[in-house]
Simulated assay, not measured.
Amino acid sequence: MTETISGRVVRPGAVVPGSVEVDGPTILDVTERGHPGDDIIVPGFVDLHCHGGGGHTFTRGDAEAARAAAAFHLRHGTTTTLASLVSSPYELMRDATAAYLPLVADGTIAGVHYEGPYLSHTRCGAQNPAFLRDPSLEELTALVELGEGAVRMVTVAPELPGALAAVEFLTGHGVVAALGHTDATYEQTLAGIAAGATVGTHLCNGMRPAHHREPGPIVALLDSPSIVCELVADGIHLHDGMLRFAAHAAGPDRTALVTDAMDAAGMPDGRYELGGQEVTVADRVARLARDGSIAGSTLTMDAAFRQAVGAGLDLPAAAEMAATTPARVLGLADEVGALEAGLRADLVVLAPDLTVKRVMRAGAWL
Rank of each mutant, 00 (worst) to 15 (best):
M360I: 14
A338L: 10
R133V: 03
V86T: 02
T324E: 12
H49G: 09
G310C: 04
D38F: 08
S136R: 14
G77I: 12
V359M: 00
D183G: 14
G77F: 10
L347N: 12
F45P: 08
L146W: 09
A333I: 08
D302Q: 13
D223R: 13
V219I: 15
E273A: 14
T300W: 00
P217N: 02
D283W: 06
T80M: 06
A69N: 00
Y186D: 12
D23E: 15
L257F: 00
Y90V: 14
L274T: 12
G61L: 01
G147D: 08
D302N: 05
L231A: 03
T280K: 10
T26L: 14
L299G: 03
D353Y: 10
T2Y: 09
V42H: 03
T59V: 15
G363Q: 13
A286G: 08
D134M: 12
L132E: 04
L103Q: 04
G111R: 06
V15P: 10
R33P: 06
P161K: 01
R254M: 01
V258C: 04
V104Q: 11
L82D: 04
E159A: 10
A323M: 05
L243W: 02
A327Y: 10
P135T: 07
Q277G: 04
E91R: 09
T189I: 11
A150T: 12
E148D: 14
A338C: 09
H51N: 10
F245K: 07
L332S: 10
M207L: 03
L160E: 07
L132C: 02
L238S: 05
V309L: 07
I236T: 05
T325N: 02
S84Y: 00
S87N: 03
A246P: 05
T31M: 13
L288N: 08
G44H: 11
K357Q: 15
R271C: 12
L92A: 12
V228W: 05
S19Q: 08
P326H: 11
H51P: 01
A163F: 05
R208V: 08
T185C: 11
L74A: 04
I41Y: 01
G266S: 00
E148M: 06
H212K: 13
Q188L: 03
H211S: 12
M153N: 11
A246M: 05
R123Y: 06
A99P: 01
L140H: 11
A126L: 00
N205M: 07
L164N: 06
A83T: 02
T155K: 01
L288F: 07
T78A: 01
G200L: 02
D134P: 14
T324W: 06
A166Q: 05
P268Q: 13
T108G: 07
G241V: 11
G342A: 03
V329W: 00
L146C: 02
A319K: 08
P217W: 13
E138T: 15
P12A: 02
D314V: 07
G34L: 14
R123K: 12
T324V: 07
T59S: 06
H248I: 09
S297F: 04
M267E: 09
L203P: 10
I5C: 00
L164V: 08
